[in-house]
Design a protein around this nucleic acid. Sequence first.
RNA 1: GCCCGCUUAGCUCAGUUGGCCAGAGCAGCUGUCUUGUAAACAGCAGGUCAUCGGUUCGAAUCCGAUAGCGGGCUCCA
Length: 659
Amino acid sequence: MSAQVTVSVSGSPRELAAGTTAADLFADDRAVIVARVDGELRDLTHELTGGEEVEPVTAADPEGLAVLRHSTAHVLAQAVQATFKDARLGIGPPIKDGFYYDFDVETPFTPDDLKALDKAMQRLIKDGQTFRRRVVTDDEARAELAAEPYKLELIGLKGGNGDAEGADVEVGAGELTIYDNLNRKGEVAWKDLCRGPHVPTTKMIGNGFQLMRSAAAYWRGSEKNPQLQRIYGTAWATKDELKAYLDRLAEAERRDHRKLGTELDLFSFPDEIGSGLVVFHPKGGVIKRVMEDYVRNRHIEEGFQYVGTPHITKGGLFETSGHLPYYADTMFPPMQLENSEYYLKAMNCPMHNLIFRSRGRSYRELPLRLFEFGSVYRYEKSGVVHGLTRVRGLTQDDSHSYVTPEQAPDEIRHLLKFVTGLLSDFGLDDYYLELSTRSDDPAKKDKFVGSDEDWAKATEVLRTVAEESGAQLVPDPGGAAFYGPKISVQAKDAIGRTWQMSTIQYDFNQPKGFGLEFAAADGTRQQPVMIHSAKFGSLERFFGVLVEHYAGAFPPWLAPVQAVGIPVTDDHVPYLNDVAGKLRAAGVRVEVDDSDDRMPKKIRTHTKQKVPFMLIVGDDDVAKGAVSFRFRDGSQDNGVPIDDAIERITEAIRTRAQV
RNA sequence: GCCCGCUUAGCUCAGUUGGCCAGAGCAGCUGUCUUGUAAACAGCAGGUCAUCGGUUCGAAUCCGAUAGCGGGCUCCA
């Protein structure tokens, strides 16, 4: 009866009675929510049979937290079906920061529904329901879930390639399981097809969850399928962590570039112009120009030649480049002129190819590097346009390096160093690389042009260079452009969000399409490889990211107004004008606030406008030939001699320091 | 493009179940005050309630369409 088995618990051997569960093993630690048994997460009710490696898992563990969120999703689904009898279940996986669950319901959920569901969930949680795992056959599952058409569909998919995001949390590759939720009396209150594992009791969900919003989502992620109603929620191990998360959301809202863009008078999107089309106001224009000046100079320093190309072109060019067959529906429709179809430019590379092809090229000219600020227009679908990060008219700092295949690795190295240096100058020091490759899925192969060998070779070159850079490299299968693989730089902003910024793409297709060639040393004509690269990517998007990264408090070199003079009384205005004149002569963007406002009001105004240097002058300063600094954070440095003040400001601008 | 929601003055928002000339704060303008580190005081001006159509004796309020915005989904060369 009392047979002993041996398991390894967190590395040390333990003798246990046969039939001992993980719950027995970790009974003294209430924070344990599941067990990792031989590397697989298991319910605590899992019985140990001897020989396993067992570890406790708490919600502090990312996988444990995912289990907690998944269980919370189940509680939500139970609450929904209790409230809306006709709701059919989709899937309900854990995601970053929370979970969702999809439902097929007659009418979409309202905010009031969410409130009611939140309450219903609280009740279920208080009830301390337990999760019970039950292995079933396909036929049993079909019988039990006869009323759940979506679940039935998933049963049919079992073990297949989990093509629906999150579907694998419902049906695994192995046996099929149903989880029963047992109420306090031990009755089955609800059940769901689910692979598990789950927390032992809903009590562990505690108060660390909140329903966030509802939205429609296509069943199994395809717009060909019907839309289900998705409810998003967040869930954490403790109330404090929930609060910290909600605070993070509030912080992100505070930094929202759309809000700051209005408050700081940087840009706007006039309805009269159209969706996704931005106008930069004078203050935003300063930042944009500083960015442009910077990147133009840096390109020239890095051996690029500045070129210019038009905003529209005849369609034949995009047929040659191969874009038209792939992206016609994301281009603005053509204009009919003089028996030709003219398109707004959606990409710059074809025009640069024409510059390359405008005369014979020698190997001695390679690498030939062309660069411009290319204005491109893309007919983004109406639902995706978003502030400056997804627009219909944008400026790319776009370059194309024409190189021999042998030169390609060096050129990619060169570009990677260039872009990471640029990001760092703009205060984005934290980044990782993403390698976007062709999809392995044969069904999607026709989205990509070129032979397997060419793709393999190009991918290998990018991978090698990316790996030797020492930066973290994340694979992105299927993310490549149709003409070749790419490395993109994903930069992390001040609050930890990542943004795709710079890209470097290896293209062997367009040189072929355009018949580009150069005369090699041996007199033969050979085809160059072109390497596309955008450093900011889109100037507009980069601008938006900078606004959010700095929360509008730009470092002095980017700040639209770098310094503002604030007189204590009108009498001090001439003195400040004199100081401002000297600053202007030193290249500083400075203003003197000679308005009728009181001095404290002026401080408030310019603090809110996030001006980095406020220079306050009263009788004391005039007497000493000085100014008094006040900074955005409220700190002060009084009585600084004028020359020192000028040096301090110009030094901060020159070194791109933050203050 | 699809689903849901929103749209009142330059900005942020009030406007009870449809009912006299639609309100506030900030910003703007005009005065008075001459002032030392986040809002002096007073006055003035500013809105065809996104647009168009409908219901009604009467619409900011109810219905429909369109546009724009927002949250998601799909997409993102």
